[in-house]
Design a protein around this nucleic acid. Structure first.
Lengths: 225, 225
DNA sequence: GACAAAATACCAACCAGTTGGTATGCAGGT
DNA sequence: ACCTGCATACCAACTGGTTGGTATTTTGTC
């Protein structure tokens, strides 16, 4: 209920002025709430009152921070992408010295985080772009950008691994990176249809097997001496 | 199904009365319109009036044929699935005697039909289930069912091809069939984000390459019945 | 007091669904 | 053929709850 008092907003950082801090806390609450609600019901079915309720705030606060529902969705997309980047940067696989291990580790990691309820691991960007690509160009562009940025990080590892393990192969690192994103997005759709993450995990097993054949470890591998 | 009610009461025998059975024509118009509008904007953003306008009919006609917007979406899902089944049955690849050729032909065919505007080749079921899986259980169940039915058709070919070309492999035909659906659904999402079908075609190239390695043509294949 | 954050109250547009009515076709009786 | 009764097909106008957005006020902080 609304009984949640804003006790914490009074002390963002003890003592110091910190003028923007309380607002930041509420803005973040609203963004987290928007991510969750939109992941659950999609963009157009997500009412701003749903987001406010989830954040424990009112519409007054919402429109103080965002000039419209669409602006909130755009900010939520950026927020989601930033959180994801942080998560994958911090994951142990990303510190492996071998690029091939990082690529396979990425797929394994994505499989490992398929836990909890569906809105907790599905992709906000894929969910939004599916219904907004035609009617909300700004949302489409934002989703495109953040998905492509995420794919680009993976593409770098794929390119490095390809140079070592499959230098002459016909496929491009870019298309392979995008392909892995397609598998993920599609796996989420199947998981939603089946109401559980098991199908998605099976799909990621296939994706991992594919990467293993794209980057054969025993073959004509051009190793450094 | 939905539209089997009228056959006994209005038009027992297929005859010439052009004015006698406009119901079927209008119902089909509404279903086609619903498929198109929902593919373009998603389920909740698709207004009943949008569907009526697209069909050239009024809301009176709409609620005469469907008791609610959700009922229309369910009927549209069935309509879409039936149309798809017909399309793939009629496709030339499906008459190849070799199961492996049918599997690869399926992927090629799906790539070949990536033409025209996005709402013309994307999947109604994936679009709807993404936003309705939690709030509309009946829609989720229908999408699950039709996707699974489509996958099952492919699974049969995959199983036959596996028995001949990769009998001992660890993967199951079912998971491979679902995986191909995930790739397709994800490819559609990327195509929407990028506003064009090219990414999707690239993804299907990867999927085809994967199936070629799953079903190696030169290896230890002999299982003539 | 000045300023920002958040709450309350409110509105106008929107939209799923309803209502009442018209037009058409079909059967069966006369 | 002609009426009557009845069902289907469709339409135009309406309704009432919903919802994005606004206007105003209150609260807390420097």
């Amino acid at each position: 209920m609304k009984a949640v008092k804003r006790s914490a907003s009074v002390l963002p950082r003890a003592g110091k002025p910190a003028k923007a801090a309380p607002s930041q806390a509420s803005a973040r609450k609203l963004l987290d709430a928007a991510v969750h609600v939109i992941r659950s019901k999609g963009y157009s079915a997500a009412r701003v009152e749903d987001i406010c309720a989830e954040a424990g705030l009112t519409k007054g606060a919402f429109f103080h921070h965002f000039k419209s529902k669409e602006a909130c969705a755009l900010a939520a997309a950026a927020h989601f992408a930033a959180n994801a980047a942080e998560l994958f940067d911090a994951a142990p696989y990303s510190r492996s010295p071998d690029a091939r291990a990082r690529v396979l580790g990425y797929v394994e990691f994505r499989k490992a985080i398929l836990k909890g309820e569906l809105p907790q691991f599905t992709c906000l960007l894929g969910t939004m772009v599916q219904e907004a690509y035609d009617s909300h160009p700004a949302i489409r562009a934002a989703c495109d950008r953040y998905i492509s940025e995420h794919a680009a990080r993976l593409e770098a590892d794929i390119a490095e691994a390809k140079a070592r393990y499959a230098p002459g192969a016909a496929w491009t690192p870019q298309s392979a990176a995008l392909y892995s994103q397609a598998v993920l997005q599609g796996a989420f759709i199947l998981a939603k249809a089946r109401h559980g993450p098991k199908v998605a995990a099976d799909c990621l097993d296939h994706l991992k097997r594919y990467f293993e054949t794209l980057l054969p470890i025993g073959a004509a591998e051009h190793r450094a001496p």
